[in-house]
Design a protein around this nucleic acid. Structure first.
Lengths: 247, 247
DNA sequence: CATGATCCTAAACACGTGTTCAATCCTTCG
DNA sequence: CGAAGGATTGAACACGTGTTTAGGATCATG
């Protein structure tokens, strides 16, 4: 009724066929992925013939594009709204009512993972909004300054998106459904601890990285610096911490 | 002639056909995804007939399973090695030589995203290894304690995996190829700053969350607490920060 | 040489896919 | 009413898919 009114989770009888098709497509694409979804499935869900799907949207790929656009509009708003961080706000709103908005959450995740054009646009928008929010936080003194605000905004955005993309793994590991109250409650404090105090007890890692980054040639294969179990962040990716030299 | 050259950690010509098929499959699955890859493509890459692919592996799905197992073995080691955090170490090794190991990096990312059985196993393993590393860090005083070590390990693992899953978006946003020296160097300091000092300048968010989590009923729809631009982490997912109450 | 056994392939099969097309139904309006 | 025009469909088409089948090379061994 309020903001995203047209966004009823389940298509209604009275909804136009084209809208029912779009809703069914979003649900299927989000739940099983674009490739694993057939036009016939979508048509059946919408109570319609496969031919009508093509008639209305032109092709399966065009249908996906229409879904992307529609969801982006839901997220960003018809005409770019006044305040910047609208996308994040809307997504938070979605996560408030997971049962109702799950299809959109899922579809949004697949957009990002598939590297769709619409997904790229939304990602860039998120980074932009995040940067704005961080700037505001720094301005009012609630957040720390960064040596590279743009990069920090990118990193925080990526970290924020991560649980969305790994929601299945998260739910499995935690034993509670994703976006449930229990999951959120359990994640809140550790997450805030991380964002408030950090992980490291002192700045040794940071200092070591500074030194390593200062005078090292971009190329080259110097020997690894540290290796003990006390080393950095550890996993695949930003494991930068432990061995920031060789990268 | 030799198509996927970078994939072969083993010389190609003398490699057995079965190995060539497996390598080609890993490269294709990683680059374009399982569904978008046909058995015929893999066969062509391996210089072999489609029938042989099935003959050796039984089915396309079984081939994927074989790829999963093979890559898991590469990551974890034949017989579980002595030290625990082997997986993370191997992945870091891969990221050291992106050109050579890109296929494995890509395939690993799709395993996680697709929720493959092998992907799940690797994810659990990563969480376990991360937890062990964090425990060691806490023990030797280099890392802070956590109110929920298990959850922290999960979160840090997810955050660490994030850039891997969003590598395309990352590369696009940064303008440098993923896992390149330039990308790593630019990410290092902001990442370490985040992990060393955190994001928030004080513990107001944390305190607010504590208070909210203490006496609030798991269900309920109280009014939002804050809303200003100074609010938390902002985006989709662990945006917990801003409004830890309603979750 | 003959005998298997192993590796491998060409050809075909059965099927699911996205899409097209001619023909309906249904509403609207002159 | 009757014509027009959009919405809708059943049936088919062309094609790509994973897989099967029947057999051909190749080669070590009796």
């Amino acid at each position: 009724m309020f903001r995203i009114m047209n966004v009823r989770s389940v298509p209604f009888e009275d909804a136009t066929a084209s809208a029912r098709i779009r809703d069914a497509a979003i649900a299927r694409f989000g739940a099983q992925g674009y490739d694993r979804t057939s036009v016939r499935e979508i048509a059946a869900d919408a109570g319609v013939s496969p031919a009508l799907v093509i008639h209305h949207f032109g092709s399966k790929e065009a249908l996906r594009h229409a879904c992307d656009d529609w969801l982006a509009t839901q997220l960003i708003g018809e005409k770019t709204r006044v305040a910047a961080p609208e996308v994040a706000a809307t997504i938070r709103e979605w996560l408030d009512d997971p049962e109702r908005f799950r299809p959109y959450i899922d579809y949004f995740a697949t957009m990002l993972a598939d590297g769709t054009e619409g997904g790229n646009r939304l990602f860039d928008r998120l980074v932009h909004d995040t940067a704005a929010m961080l700037d505001a936080g720094v301005a009012d003194g609630s957040m720390r300054e960064s040596s590279d605000p743009g990069m920090r905004a990118l990193i925080i955005t990526v970290h924020g998106l991560a649980p969305l993309l790994l929601r299945d793994q998260l739910a499995r590991a935690m034993g509670t459904p994703f976006a449930s109250s229990a999951t959120i409650r359990r994640m809140t404090r550790p997450m805030l601890e991380l964002y408030t105090h950090g992980l490291y007890a002192d700045s040794r890692m940071l200092d070591a990285a500074d030194e390593a980054l200062r005078g090292v040639a971009p190329t080259g294969s110097e020997p690894r610096s540290d290796k003990g179990p006390g080393n950095p962040n550890q996993d695949p990716d930003p494991p930068t911490h432990g061995r920031p030299d060789t990268w």
